[in-house]
């Protein structure tokens, strides 16, 4: 235990020293993107890993958050500090509304319903005329400023995103160890058994859904403040699949899984951008996608429980290795 007490703050400190060590806006922006995706995948991880529900519509919540910020600040001239909580709230409210009927669906049907929702929202962004700027999007989103501090550089934004992320991580750490966390895990194991044990599964699933939508919306709001331009294209079906991918690669139901998943997907993409042209001169992104797919297939064959489970394998003897998808108590 004492090890953990030192290791974790040390890891956090190291991370916060990063901008001082590397004076590269490129590396910082990669870390910012990883942080933003991790926030989304954290929520998705709760929904998928603990409550056992798949969502192919989280890019829509991500986009709703982004558009909330863009519209409130450029069209209605709200203070940016108020627009950010609104970016989390609106997707949460929408999730509450659509969650009630859709979460009655199970497994594949729920996945299909969320997929449909994602496409609907994407169409709404494209068709929103003056409000959403249509397919051309919205430009001129101001920088976020909180009490005189304006987040106008990569370093400031890095701290904003990662401090937010650590607060969320701490919250989730407590959540999964609580009664609610155990109840959620029971649902992912067997919904019927959980119901028989007296768990209100419908209510819990809805809460997990709303929570994940809130996080995705928050990440979307931060994204809009970071890029200061928004259009419908980053919020399509492809993005939803990418988030699910990150959650699965990282390892469902593991604490560090979402962070690992987002980090691996983003850095692998950046790495292949450099590495592939070295192997095949003149190769474009299409080759990168092939390599990417290949690595993913290998990973899923040899490590179906995701990278988040790696730590356990190193610590435990092979015989004691946990089976697929069972979240470990010891994080």
């Amino acid at each position: 235990m004492w090890k953990k007490a030192i290791l974790r703050p040390a890891a956090v400190l190291l991370l916060f020293a990063v901008p001082l060590l590397i004076k590269s806006n490129y590396l910082l922006s990669i870390l910012i993107v990883i942080g933003l995706y991790t926030i989304i995948v954290q929520g998705l991880g709760i929904l998928m890993g603990y409550a056992g529900q798949v969502s192919f519509g989280h890019a829509a919540f991500f986009g709703l958050g982004g558009y909330t910020v863009a519209i409130l600040t450029t069209r209605f001239h709200w203070p940016t500090v108020l627009a950010l909580p609104a970016a989390a709230l609106l997707p949460g409210v929408i999730a509450a509304i659509i969650g009630r009927p859709t979460l009655k669906l199970r497994e594949l049907y729920l996945a299909l319903a969320t997929l449909g929702f994602g496409i609907l929202v994407h169409i709404a962004f494209t068709e929103g005329k003056e409000l959403t700027g249509g397919p051309s999007g919205i430009t001129g989103i101001p920088y976020l400023s909180i009490g005189g501090l304006t987040f106008d550089s990569d370093i400031k934004f890095f701290y904003l995103v990662w401090i937010t992320l650590f607060l969320i991580l701490a919250g989730i750490n407590n959540l999964v160890r609580s009664r609610v966390g155990r109840a959620l895990r029971a649902i992912s194991e067997s919904e019927h058994a959980a119901e028989n044990a007296g768990i209100d599964t419908a209510k819990l699933k809805l809460q997990a859904f709303i929570f994940s939508a809130l996080l995705a919306g928050l990440a979307g709001g931060l994204y809009a403040f970071y890029v200061t331009f928004i259009s419908p294209s980053p919020f399509g079906f492809h993005a939803s699949v990418q988030f699910v991918l990150m959650a699965v690669i990282g390892g469902l139901g593991t604490f560090w899984g979402p962070l690992l998943g987002a980090a691996v997907v983003v850095t692998l993409g950046e790495f292949l951008r450099w590495a592939v042209p070295l192997v095949i001169p003149g190769a474009g992104g299409e080759y990168q996608i092939i390599f990417f797919g290949l690595i993913l297939v290998l990973l899923m064959i040899f490590r179906p429980e995701g990278l988040g489970a790696l730590g356990k394998c190193l610590k435990l003897s092979p015989e004691k290795m946990p089976g697929t998808g069972i979240p470990s108590k010891d994080i």
Binding site: L298, L299, F302, R303, L307, L310, C313, L314, M321
Partner: peptide
């Protein structure tokens, strides 16, 4: 499998 995991990491 464990070796492979380490390799991947």
């Amino acid at each position: 499998k464990t070796n492979l995991a380490v390799l991947l990491a």
